[in-house]
């Protein structure tokens, strides 16, 4: 599977590798320390659209949701949830095709030098929920 990892970390790697939610740990300014493949999958089209180098997740997310950076700057606790499942809409182009998606964003402060960032593309979930309501 993943070479060089002890067995218990192999199992953790499988969870992180296949998780359907984007997860990342950054420093206090948003510089990425670690992230899972889903985070790369969702982040890279935003990075390309904004013309960023891709090493700062806050710069990328704030390009679409400027209030995220303000929420972090205004958070006064030493640790805790800064944003919880905050909805936001992304509009960007890939090869001149307009993409519009609905995202959900959670940011937790671990300490002054560590943020956990979770984000998810909930577009399909919202469409399924609408279809379910329509059937009812």
């Amino acid at each position: 599977m993943n070479t060089g990892l002890p067995e218990h970390l192999q199992r953790a790697w499988t969870l992180l590798h296949r998780a359907p939610i984007a997860m990342a740990e950054t420093n206090g300014q948003g510089k990425i320390r670690q992230l899972n493949p889903k985070a790369v999958q969702l982040m890279m089209p935003m990075v390309a659209h904004l013309g960023l180098p891709g090493d700062n997740l806050l710069d990328t997310l704030a390009g679409f949701l400027p209030s995220a950076r303000q929420a972090i700057a205004g958070f006064e606790g030493n640790s805790g949830l800064i944003l919880e499942q905050e909805p936001y809409r992304l509009r960007f182009r890939i090869d001149s095709v307009l993409i519009e998606r609905q995202f959900s964003l959670t940011i937790e402060k671990i300490n002054d030098d560590s943020l956990l960032i979770f984000f998810e593309d909930v577009t399909d979930l919202l469409l399924k929920a609408d279809a379910l309501r329509y059937r009812l």
Binding site: L5, L9, W13, L16, I32, Q34, L35, V40, M44, G54
Partner: peptide
């Protein structure tokens, strides 16, 4: 240009 991951470390 893209990013891959080694476990969870970003690799440009």
């Amino acid at each position: 240009d893209y990013i891959l991951t080694y476990v969870c470390e970003p690799i440009k």
